[in-house]
């Protein structure tokens, strides 16, 4: 395995994170607490072949988010992001259309 391709993109973490977030996180924008880059979560470098899931900044490889799914508990670490912003406009339209 080469050192360049042992990660996946942020979409790979969508399944694991869908049990935590009500909104699709891959479309959300997060700011790296280390370098300040703001990118869509889908662009993150995701490492799945680990005891947890680790998402890293595509610009500086700093850890953005970690998830550990143990027996009856999920641990989430988002210290690596100063914010994570979700676009809810699509959701609102859906809600209005449905109501």
């Amino acid at each position: 395995m080469s050192s360049d391709n042992d990660y996946l993109d942020g979409n790979a973490a969508a399944g694991e994170l869908s049990s935590i977030f009500a909104t699709d996180i891959t479309a959300a924008e997060g700011q790296c607490a280390n370098c300040g880059a703001t990118k869509r979560f889908a662009e993150a470098h995701v490492y799945m072949q680990t005891p947890g899931v680790v998402a890293r900044c595509a610009a500086c490889e700093h850890v953005l988010l970690r998830v550990v799914n143990v027996r009856h508990r999920i641990f989430l670490d988002v210290r690596g992001m100063t914010f994570l912003s979700f676009d809810t406009s699509q959701d609102r339209r859906t809600v209005q259309a449905a109501s």
Partner: peptide, 11 residues
Amino acid sequence: FPVLSAGPTPN
């Protein structure tokens, strides 16, 4: 011997 990595491989 599975490879587990939580980040880029340092060289």
